[in-house]
Design a protein around this nucleic acid. Sequence first.
RNA 1: GUGACUGUAGCUCAGCUGGUUAGAGCGCUAGACUGUGACUCUAGAGGUCGCGGGUUCGACCCCCGUCAGUCACCCCA
Length: 424
Amino acid sequence: MASTIAAPRGTADLMPPATARWQELEARIHRLARRYGYGEIRTPVFEATELFVRGVGETTDIVEKEMYTFVDRGGRSMTLRPEWTAPVVRAAMQHGLFSQGPQRLYYIGPIFRYERPQKGRYRQSHQFGIECAGFGGPEADVEVIALAWELMQSYGMAGVALHLNSIGDEACRPRYREALLAHFRPHRSELSEDSQRRLERNPLRLLDSKAPEDRPFLDSAPSFADVLCDACRAHFARVCGYLDAMGIPYAVDPRIVRGLDYYTRTVFEFVSDALGAQSTVCAGGRYDNLVKSLGGPDVPSVGFALGLERFLMILEAMGFTGEGGRDGIQAIALGADARATLVPLVARLRGAVRSPVFADYEDRKLLAHLKLADRNHARYALILGSDELAAGEIILRDLERRRDERWPLGSVEERAASVVEEGR
RNA sequence: GUGACUGUAGCUCAGCUGGUUAGAGCGCUAGACUGUGACUCUAGAGGUCGCGGGUUCGACCCCCGUCAGUCACCCCA
């Protein structure tokens, strides 16, 4: 109630202890990507609007109604990044990366979409994703999937399923489109209102309709597998073969089509049963024509994007907190004289110990100081009062075992370093 | 963009068919315990009852609007 201005709709403030979970996840992601040979790329949070219109597709929902677009003072139309792939490709092209051979890049950061918020969907959300550019073969598809799979495995995540499909290429997709139109058009008036619209705009989208009245026509719809050209069929078979060989479980799901225009051949989703209606935690696929369509060379690529909010929701459902037990030292001074001695000591301690060093500079009773130590989850308290000061000593109290030791003031840093690091 | 439900203390929520000083628990501050924490007890601080309008002698309660939250549709990470 205090503030009259709140965070904008669909955005969230993150603060302790939630930020600890984010930091843990981000650190794990950076280590994982590095182990797979990926380097981090960071691009501007806004780009020329034209980049997304051309990259994502003019008739996609993202471009038609979800972009945060504004005109800058120079009269240029700019848009807050609604997805990362187009900007990454743009940056790689701009700096000539594609003429230096294959590129393995990853990103982590915010995206913006003007949508009505609901569980697992926000106006500012955060994605981790990778782009593997320069390999046309199924090996790259599998590498990308394996990386996402390993991230989930590292948390022992259950209830997440990999769904896989191929949506063909420029040779066979038009054929499939025609086959779908031929199948649905005769039943046009029996389809749901949404699906009638989809029929004209994007027949592929019809496949993931949830409307019950569409059900019978969906079940009898032609499968992409029947129409794939030989090259796409072989590619898909090898992706499946590699996944089998690597022991990564998956289900071929003919209804996965993806919402962005640039996908070709392999598309996949990791779906969780812990997320409600927005159940996709990670999705991606191959985009062999995107670079060329943005004016670059012919560079086949594959990648995925993973929603960090959704990933954290799964972890939360698993009971993951990111918090450990007690850690660190609460430095306590009783009185102005003790404080004058303690402050420089705290500074030295922070240089000698990796754990957090907490300090409070108010005149409080010892009791109040210890309560603060509790709230900080400190493992130890270092207590300096007038008696100790006179004796040239300080008390180290182990707050977990409730034991005290008296240390000479001169040896605090060394002793603290060994005691705290050992956690005894 | 559409729909449903919900907005009372920092948090989780009470508040009978409208009746006049709006409550509890947790948390916070202080004390019981001149200097030893997680338990306990006591006291205190903290509220334009989301906001605006209307009905009424009287509105936290009823009506309209608006904003926000939640969930779902559309769509997506």
